[in-house]
Write a protein that binds this DNA or RNA. Structure first.
Length: 122
DNA sequence: AGGCTGACATCGC
DNA sequence: CGCGATGCCAGCC
């Protein structure tokens, strides 16, 4: 269960030097009112084929409040990870505050709000 | 050392 | 149109 791994989200050591940090960096760099996808981040990090890694990284990211994980959605602009937030509505509420409209757990104008790190950060 | 898991992405039936 | 199976990679048991 996720509970089991939830405990290891915060390792006592500082040996968290992995692409996790890269994911954190990218996610933190996401402009307000913008969103990106796991696939885009994965691509930016080089592991474009496996967006799962990004999702996995985000799993650990949710432990860090400074990481706007709510701005990261799946390829369809769907808030698939909302269930991992404190509350199921927190994600879309935060997005709404950033002028990002969410309908049916889906980001509206996703393509317009989409922020591609491989393009914006290059 | 081997196997399981994961907030995805895609194709297949 | 819905559910299932597969690929990818890294971390953890």
């Amino acid at each position: 269960m996720f509970m089991a791994k939830l405990k290891q989200v915060l390792p006592s050591g500082a040996r968290d030097i992995s692409f996790f940090e890269q994911v954190y960096e990218v996610v933190k760099l996401i402009p307000k009112g913008r969103v990106t996808s796991y696939g885009a981040i994965a691509h930016f990090l080089g592991t474009k084929m496996s967006a799962r890694m990004v999702g996995w990284a985000m799993n650990a990211a949710h432990a860090d409040p400074s990481i706007p994980a709510h701005r990261v959605v799946n390829r369809n602009g769907l808030l698939t990870g909302k269930m991992h937030f404190a509350t199921a509505t927190e994600m879309e509420e935060k997005l709404n505050k950033e002028k990002v409209k969410v309908k049916e757990d889906q980001v509206m104008d996703f393509e317009k709000k989409f922020w591609d790190p491989s393009v914006e950060l290059t």
